[in-house]
Amino acid sequence: MNQQQALILQLVKKVSKKDSSPGLDESLFESGYLDSFALPDLVAELEEQFSVKIPDSDLNPRKFDSIERIASYLEERAA
């Protein structure tokens, strides 16, 4: 796990209020780490912690369904 993935994991644990850790490619929705109401909180945390503005056009829940997907999306935004 790299530094970026570790920070994403930290944010997922914060918004899900869970101590356990999901796998990098584990669905955050299917495994219960995220639900409809935690997702907006996670997106807000990602924007703040990674200093990135996520446009509405990118607000597709699938982009945020695993730590790997979130990391890939943030890398795309940074590119």
């Binding site: 639900d35 409809s36 829940p61």
Partner: peptide
């Protein structure tokens, strides 16, 4: 209805 999408967009818009 994709509830995750609806709530995500509504809670921001």
């Amino acid at each position: 209805m994709n509830g995750r999408s609806v709530i995500l967009h509504a809670s921001r818009k």
